[in-house]
Design a protein around this nucleic acid. Structure first.
Lengths: 213, 213
DNA sequence: GTCTATACAGCGATAGAC
DNA sequence: GTCTATCGCTGTATAGAC
């Protein structure tokens, strides 16, 4: 799906792919600092030397996984139409959250990642900064369409965009004691940020959409 | 201040105290996974053996720092009067954030802490759960006093309390590119969560309070 | 209470045989 | 492409002299 590997050897590709998949799985479940190249190799039943033949070091694995994450998010954005009704807004959050959950270590362990590979911090920031711009455009659109309450200042509306990004980048490492349905909970949690900003008629539409789930 | 050490030797206490302070400083600045007992000892000009005489291991240092953090927060809550006008609300956030900033590694590296010492995760959660109860009480009070807009559902108001706790526990590891005045920015960021919930007259009071800074 | 010395495990990464 | 073997380093923690 997201493999643009140029290797000519198909047999080779399989192991290479397996290593990356296993690394992702272990990073997510055990924490980045607790997963070594040895663990990954052992779990796959291959030698550590073999792993290092395919990927010179642990940071390479992390960098590749980060790139895959960004590409998956960007791919998912291609299939949107231009409209932004409430259902589409919520679905868009859901799509993003599902992908993010697959790469959860990038968020729960982001400080470790950033300290190991400072470039990722920069890329991470730039990516979500562009997301924020999109939110601001969307909110401006909502405002001109009269969906946003008149009393809301531009300053406050800009803070809302910031709160969206803040929530999106932080929900995976939240201390909320939610184990199952964490995804559904945080989709609603995120969508509800905008509710008190909406005009009464809009509010009811969103409210019913969120409570029916 | 927060030292309830029962040691009888005053000379002893000084080194013990210095170790804990230095550990905190290094955890905050270098990241928990990058600070070893060797580093702490070297920075203080003492031997690693000496450090381990005072504290058997690194986890003990982390646990003690966590307890100190909790105690400092609880101490700061003693000096409140019963009222909750907007200025007091904002000051209360500020007091908490300053203490949190002094123990920033507990938040930026909370996943590492929790994986090392699972009890802390539990204590952390319980502490902020009780904070959430206080927020809910406060919001209920605001509601009966007519400060909260009538259209706001109880469900939505409960989400606001959750969003407060979420923000409080996540701001220190936010990916916002704010380096200086991060504290002031996030005090405003947090306070502004409640603004779209307020009745118009209240809104103006809060808005002017937040923009004057 | 503080030191030096050391044991021991685990890490990332490499060399060289097959 | 995959293996075994190994190096060098760093981490936690302990023992024993002073």
């Amino acid at each position: 799906m997201y493999h643009k590997d140029t290797s000519l050897n198909l047999h080779n590709l399989k192991t290479k792919e397996k290593i990356l998949n296993k690394a992702l799985k272990l990073f997510n479940s055990n924490g980045l600092e607790n997963v070594t190249t040895r663990h990954i190799a052992t779990e796959l039943g291959i030698s550590q030397g073999n792993l290092h033949y395919h990927y010179p070091n642990k940071n390479t694995l992390i960098k590749l996984l980060f790139n895959h994450f960004i590409n998956e998010i960007k791919d998912s954005e291609q299939f949107k139409d231009g409209s932004f009704k409430e259902q589409i807004f919520i679905n868009s959050i859901k799509t993003n959250y599902i992908i993010m959950q697959n790469y959860s270590f990038l968020f729960t362990d982001k400080e470790i990642v950033w300290r190991r590979i400072p470039e990722i911090k920069q890329d991470f920031f730039e990516f979500f900064e562009s997301k924020k711009d999109k939110f601001n455009q969307l909110l401006a659109l909502y405002k001109t369409e009269g969906l946003i309450r008149k009393q809301i200042s531009d300053t406050q509306l800009n803070f809302l965009a910031n709160q969206f990004i803040f929530t999106i980048t932080s929900w995976l490492s939240s201390s909320d004691n939610i184990t199952e349905d964490k995804l559904d909970y945080f989709i609603e949690f995120t969508a509800r940020l905008i509710l008190p900003y909406l005009e009464k008629s809009e509010l009811n539409k969103w409210e019913s959409l969120l409570t029916q789930n």
